[in-house]
Simulated assay, not measured.
Amino acid sequence: MNVSGRETTTSVSYFILLGFPSSPEMQLLYFGLFSVTYTLTLMGNAAIACAVRWDRRLHTPMYIFLGNFSLLEIFYVTTTVPNMLVNFLSTTKSISFLRCFAQFYFFFSFGCDEGFYLCIMAFDRYLAICRPLHYPRIMTKPLYTGLVIFGWSCGFIIFLTPVVLISQLPFCGPNIINHFMCDPVPLMMLSCSENNIIQRIYSTFNAIFMIGTFLFVLCSYALVILSVLRMPSAASKRKAFSTCASHLAVVFLFFGSIMVMYVSPGSEHPVEVQKIVTLFYSVITPLCNPLIYSLRNKDMKAALKKVFGTEIPVHKT
């Protein structure tokens, strides 16, 4: 059968997201488990964002960046989890071509923005700890406002190109994605085009972005740790290490899992492993981040108690 390029490209109008195939009873169990996880993620990150917004003691660049990072987490999980919950109760599990690529675009744009925010927070800690005398002069309101805008917008600009390129691939069937979201790797595997240039461009883009941002964060914190070790006061060392430890924990949770998936070749990972790793960085990490940031920070714990109506007195030392 002779099929023209235009007809081939438009032959697939929707995809089927298999998710986690199992019995109806297990699907209900998954629905309950991920519903609770999603709710806790929204509550935890919203609490941090509200604490930063309402407590004037947290109106500093470090906490402003953290508040925006928490808002990003809310949008990040919302791009995939609600659709996954619907599919647990659905028999068709279908998603339109347009919605699939919209999910792909927003999920990875917000994820890209998170990577930039981790760099911004690392840069802020570097200035605060390694250049404390110059920090107020450098980290001015125009600068941190510009960094906030940059952190929110850059991912959406950068990810336009990969999404447009992959959406232009011909999809002539099958249309079944063995995943719970529209991930680019299984999407490109469904293409009936034998041209792998786009896949190479996408892999190169991911490698440059993730390795570049990860190295920037590591170098920033390496300089911070060296500066902390030279501090004469043990109390100052503990406070600096406490802040850096929470940031680094989030960094390794975020970058560790996505590098496993998108920097190394996708063909080396079994389908179930891909799902579990994706689940980790898309659902579990956003759930853990509020706990990591709040449990090790006295100011944040005091602000959260204020948000929940149990404010405690804060004594100045």
Rank of each mutant, 00 (worst) to 15 (best):
K316I: 11
Y293Q: 13
A245Y: 13
N196R: 15
I177M: 04
N68M: 06
L133A: 09
C192T: 10
V251H: 10
S294W: 01
I211K: 05
M62A: 13
C219F: 14
Y262V: 11
V163P: 03
V36M: 10
T41W: 00
F101I: 04
P24H: 06
A49L: 00
P290N: 02
P286I: 11
V3W: 07
V163M: 08
P132E: 09
Q199M: 07
P82H: 02
I158F: 12
G266K: 07
I177G: 03
Q199E: 14
P61A: 07
K301G: 07
L226T: 06
V224D: 01
R57W: 01
Y117W: 13
Y281Q: 03
C130E: 08
V250S: 11
C182D: 00
S236D: 15
V250P: 00
Q168H: 12
Y293V: 11
F123P: 04
C182K: 05
I211P: 01
I225S: 06
V3T: 13
P170D: 08
Q199D: 10
F101W: 01
S11K: 13
S282H: 10
P270R: 12
K305C: 13
R6K: 13
F65A: 10
S227G: 10
I48K: 02
F69W: 03
V271C: 06
T140F: 01
E194K: 14
L17G: 04
G111N: 05
V164E: 11
F171M: 09
T140H: 02
P232M: 02
S233M: 11
S70I: 00
V12A: 05
I208Y: 08
T204L: 09
F97Y: 15
L223F: 13
S90M: 08
R200K: 10
S264R: 14
G256S: 03
S267K: 09
L71R: 11
F123S: 10
N297A: 00
F106Q: 05
L89D: 05
M139L: 13
F108V: 00
T60E: 06
S220Q: 06
M121Y: 03
F159C: 12
S96K: 05
D183L: 05
N68C: 11
